[in-house]
């Protein structure tokens, strides 16, 4: 079911974001016992898609899940193991030469916004600093006004 909803939420033939599918994916992440550990890898695979629209949709799904899927999902995303998958999209040593500027821009913007929103996640900060040191991130992106404030706190586990 996780893959089914993710395929729907990242369908490259649809230009608009399918928010109902994203919501269903998030709910599935929260109800499936393996959801929080499995979902980040499904998302990483989509984010590395050669199809720009699929990758962009997947980034929106990831961002929504980080804000709404609870601590366990957040904890997985904040590990180097997952952050490396985002770094691969940016680094010319990995997939960076094939990634479009739009996708790279969104990944950088998202990583930077996490460093602002979640300063306690040291690994996110380290990954972002490494990208800057490598010259992959030239300067901090300007976050749109609606993204400067942190997202709503994750729902308590019991809900």
């Amino acid at each position: 079911a996780l893959e089914l909803w993710l395929n729907k939420a990242t369908d490259p033939s649809v230009s608009e974001q399918d928010w109902a599918a994203i919501q269903n994916f998030c709910e599935q992440v929260n109800t499936d016992p393996n959801g929080p550990t499995h979902a980040p890898w499904l998302l990483a695979h989509k984010i590395q898609s050669p199809q720009e629209r699929e990758a962009l949709h997947a980034l929106t799904v990831l961002e929504t899940c980080v804000n709404h899927c609870g601590e366990k999902f957040h904890g997985e995303v904040a590990k180097f193991r997952f952050l490396n998958e985002l770094i691969k999209v940016l680094s010319p040593k990995y997939l960076g030469s094939w990634t479009t500027d739009k996708v790279k821009g969104r990944v950088i913007e998202m990583l930077f916004s996490w460093t602002v929103w979640f300063p306690e996640d040291i690994k996110i900060r380290d990954a972002y600093q490494m990208l800057k040191k490598q010259g992959i991130v030239k300067q901090d992106p300007k976050l749109p006004a609606d993204r400067i404030l942190p997202p709503p706190s994750p729902r308590p586990r019991s809900s």
Binding site: F80, I87, K88, S91, Y94, D126
Partner: peptide, 15 residues
């Protein structure tokens, strides 16, 4: 212990 060893195995990608 499991968590500790997982922590040790979690590295940034070599660049």
């Amino acid at each position: 212990l499991g968590e500790e060893s997982e922590e040790r195995d979690d590295h940034l990608l070599p660049m």
